[in-house]
């Protein structure tokens, strides 16, 4: 039985349907990613799955329990890393973990016993007595992640776990998440970083306007929706080139700003043609998840 299953989820804010019939099934041990532009309904979907808001339609089962009816019992075995850090600024690192453990009704000595392991996981062993406002962004995120593990959860919900972090801190979070997957934990995460999704997720769904528009393992999505090779061309006269020569050599061409994205099964002819053109520069690379994402959700800015 899946750890998390949702069928026909719907949620309205006024007349706006922010979740418009979402189906999810996440088996045990999987890292599942929910991708989508801002406002696609990712966070609302997570909140529905946790029983933090009632659906206007559909059914949810989390760890075999119906949500929202038995959401509190389900949350006893769930960890959550929210999008915005909400560590308790009045407390030290250690007190944050202690107080959070009490919310799960854990005995003081159980929390104390888990403390060294969690501090080490967060890389904060030497900072147990530090105030929250003295920690860096990466440290706070790691502590939030450690806090979500205080109850030894079976499933973790992570809402944009690395947004706002520098590359070093992101890699550190990814490494921690991989070690949790190694322990057999189920991960459900939202992100709009394609490299994060590609790196971590066994399977993902792309969401837009409250609906899931594509699902599958990352490599499979790429091969299903995108030609394997991409040549990005930019420089003087790129539009004119793309309209004439480029269009004939690539299966599909998209222009965004001053760059032409040329998608092709075989890019040899394209590159040969480009090498003869002064003023045009190019980048030849394999197709990735971002190409899928942009193809499916469009290149328009979302606010």
């Amino acid at each position: 039985m899946p750890v998390l299953e949702a069928r026909g989820l719907r949620k309205f804010y006024g007349a706006l349907e922010v979740v418009a019939g979402v189906d999810l099934a996440v088996p045990r041990g999987e890292c599942f990613g929910l991708l989508g532009p801002n406002g696609a309904g990712k966070t609302t979907t997570l909140r529905l799955c946790l029983g933090l808001t009632d659906p206007d339609g559909g059914e949810i089962s989390l760890l075999g329990l119906p949500v929202p009816a038995a959401a509190r019992r389900a949350r006893a075995k769930v960890g959550v890393v929210p999008q915005v850090d909400n560590l308790d600024p009045d407390f030290t690192v250690r007190e944050n973990l202690l107080v959070y453990g009490r919310y799960f009704d854990l005995p003081q000595r159980d929390i104390a016993a888990r403390m060294p392991e969690l501090l080490e996981f967060a890389g904060l062993t030497g900072r147990a007595g530090a105030k929250i406002n003295t920690l860096s962004g990466g440290m706070k995120r790691r502590l939030t992640l450690a806090r979500s593990l205080i109850n030894d959860p079976d499933v973790l919900f992570l809402d944009e776990p690395t947004t706002g972090l520098d590359p070093q801190a992101r890699h550190m979070i990814w490494e921690r998440l991989k070690s949790l997957m190694g322990q057999g934990k189920t991960l459900v995460l939202t992100t709009h970083f394609m490299d994060e999704a590609e790196r971590l997720c066994h399977r993902l769904s792309i969401m837009d306007h409250g609906r899931i528009i594509a699902s599958g393992p990352p490599r499979e999505l790429i091969s299903r929706y995108i030609e394997p090779q991409v040549v990005e061309v930019y420089g003087e006269g790129v539009r004119e080139w793309a309209g004439s020569q480029g269009a004939g050599l690539a299966e599909r061409t998209e222009i965004a700003g001053e760059t032409a994205f040329c998608y092709a099964r075989d890019a040899q002819a394209l590159i040969a043609g480009l090498n003869g053109r002064a003023g045009l520069r190019y980048l030849h690379r394999p197709a990735n998840l971002e190409d899928v994402f942009l193809k499916l959700t469009g290149r328009d800015i979302r606010d």
């Binding site: 509190r72 909400n86 560590l87 308790d88």
Partner: peptide, 14 residues
């Protein structure tokens, strides 16, 4: 401001 309640709501507390 601190979103303390949001953090608590993710635990088994209503």
């Amino acid at each position: 401001v601190q979103r303390t309640w949001d953090a608590i709501l993710n635990a088994p507390i209503n």
